[in-house]
Amino acid sequence: MPLTAVRFGATVTAESPATTTAPIVSVRSLDAYFAATRAVRDVSLDLVEGQVTAIIGPSGCGKSTLLRCLNRMHETVPSAHTEGEVLLEGKDIYARGVNPIEVRRRIGMVFQRPTPFPTMSIRDNVIAGFRAAGPAAPTRGEQHDIAESSLRRAALWDEVKDRLHESATALSGGQQQRLCIARALATKPRVLLLDEPTASLDPLSSQKVEELVYELRGDVTIVIVTHNMQQAARVSDRTAFMLLGELVEAAPTSRLFTSPVDERTESYITGRFG
């Protein structure tokens, strides 16, 4: 890390005085569009390595869209495009010549509804990311080790170790979601994006996913989009509040929920709208 830190030292610290380490991801004046509609407006945000950042806000505020800009998934929607920069370890992922596939291999993502590949076994789902890698595919032995360590990290190993070769669709919704997290972790991404990962789960399964997010901190940088403020308060180090496509306020979670600076943030967290 020291190398990167030095490189960022001069340029970034001025913009992010709250943090001492350099940000792993730095969003600079980002706009995201669906055709002519601007869903994300001039957002700048730094993600600190190893921390959990929550993005909250009412429905349609652009929080999911912002998240999808971080690994260039936004542009997979026809007519969608972005303007501005997103720096991953100092390199703009939107620069000319950057291959979005390379970006997505470094920044994992998990969606609202669990998305196991229905034709693959549990084990094959976990190592699916390596199929995408092509030449750098691991050997069979390595694949097994990767599957095991990823499932352990996702706190799923004990539940599935005896049925690794069964279809992933046989798992419960909560297990499927943790499988998707294991799948995203398998390729060792620097950043993990979670788009309302508990929205379709029952309370017990949600709790397990939350615990998992909590445990993964330090290990991997996490961004979690949620409409559940309690969840944000429980799992995140920093919280960003968005409204109508704009980033209103980003601060350490404890501070944002106790003494917000912006009155719109205060209105939201005290339940006056949204």
């Binding site: 390379e102 997505r104 969606f111 699916a128 990311g129």
Partner: peptide, 16 residues
């Protein structure tokens, strides 16, 4: 579509 997105987000190219 969720399956397509999941694959793309894992770094699959479109053809894969």
């Amino acid at each position: 579509d969720a399956l397509r997105e999941a694959a793309l987000a894992l770094g699959f190219s479109r053809w894969r």
